[in-house]
Design a protein around this nucleic acid. Sequence first.
DNA 1: GAAGGATATAAAGATTTCGTAAAGAATTGC
DNA 2: GCAATTCTTTACGAAATCTTTATATCCTTC
Lengths: 225, 225
Amino acid sequence: MNKAEILIIDDEPQMRKLLGITLESNDYKVLQAETGKEGVIQAASHPPELILLDIGLPDKSGHEILKELRQWYNKSIIILSVQNNETDIVTALDNGATDYLSKPFRTAELLARIRSAIRRNQTPNDTSIVDAGDLQIDLVARTVKKNNQLLKVTSTEFNLISLFARNEGRVLTHRFILKEIWGVGYQTETQYLRVFVGSLRKKIEENPNNPLHIITESGVGYRFQ
Amino acid sequence: MNKAEILIIDDEPQMRKLLGITLESNDYKVLQAETGKEGVIQAASHPPELILLDIGLPDKSGHEILKELRQWYNKSIIILSVQNNETDIVTALDNGATDYLSKPFRTAELLARIRSAIRRNQTPNDTSIVDAGDLQIDLVARTVKKNNQLLKVTSTEFNLISLFARNEGRVLTHRFILKEIWGVGYQTETQYLRVFVGSLRKKIEENPNNPLHIITESGVGYRFQ
DNA sequence: GAAGGATATAAAGATTTCGTAAAGAATTGC
DNA sequence: GCAATTCTTTACGAAATCTTTATATCCTTC
């Protein structure tokens, strides 16, 4: 039985040390990251069984890191936070956090919640690369290849094609896409979508006038295949 | 979209009422049980999407009920308790509870944890496909396949065939269909229906002159099979 | 089997939705 | 601080879809 790996993302050295000792003495293998950025890179290079994410990080808000991780990481993420306000908890859970614990937490409870979270880990589709014919979309590296050639896509363009790739074959409504990419205030800005779908098609489609990957479902949204 | 069912097992009538109102106003279907025994029976006869289990029950300890449920019930169980002691939490989680909330809890947090728990119940490629011989209608992806080949259908056409698929074998009156697809002001626009049924038949039927899927019930409506 | 109401089909007209180009605004990188 | 890139907005022609009309066919009932 090899040890389950847990990645701690927390900027406080003391907290990392405390958590590290606790977890190691309970037979977990511990990985650590000081910043969100570093955490994402570590998680990508070697996906752990569970991530403990402090939400009060210096570089980005923990919520952003959580969203970023959840674009491809589908194992458990437990949020640790000094915050105990409801909005924070609700946001984290709705962004895909597995659990939320307020600091200071009780060790035995933390361990029990970790056991529970690991037990429930779904069989992961551990590939972060979505393959769609001549296209390969790497959700971690944030790259798009067409016939093995790297395409130059902007950040928003990538977010869009990443969303498509993660929902291959199903129709996504305009509202849904706009909410996911631009946020809840933009759900009626359908024109944004038209422009960005247009520029994506120019890049990924053999013939942009007759798209084979991004199909428009008139009156509803788009479908990727 | 039918409502997710939640079973509340709690001996306090007030708490059941409070939870019931909260959940129902958030579009869940609520089932209630006063005792653990009753709860187990209810859950067995009609497994809900999630169980809210109070741990301070009179007949058996909630922990026993939890264990009993977990022998066969594998969806989410959230524990509610006035207790906030660590042993209790750890025991519950190790017995397979999905989550543990101490009373009094905050409503928004409870709802977020319920959403999270239900979300995790679903298998990643959760599709609800209606199979009708050579036709497969995917209600989530909004796609129609005939002999495994994607058909191009417009938004209204899909809404129509989706309504048919969800009421397979049943005669739907003109008025009902018109109300569902176009809204209450259109219940007499029978000609709309004729046109759209016609175009659907052209796409899905082997021989549109002798339809096998969308059957005309003259003077009444249509039936899908 | 004939009459009359109900249904089917085709096609024209009306409306909505889409795609593209391009200009202005904001952001990023050097 | 300037140039380059990216994002947001506007405008307009093109395409797809929906609605309506006309006419042919089918079905039921007597």
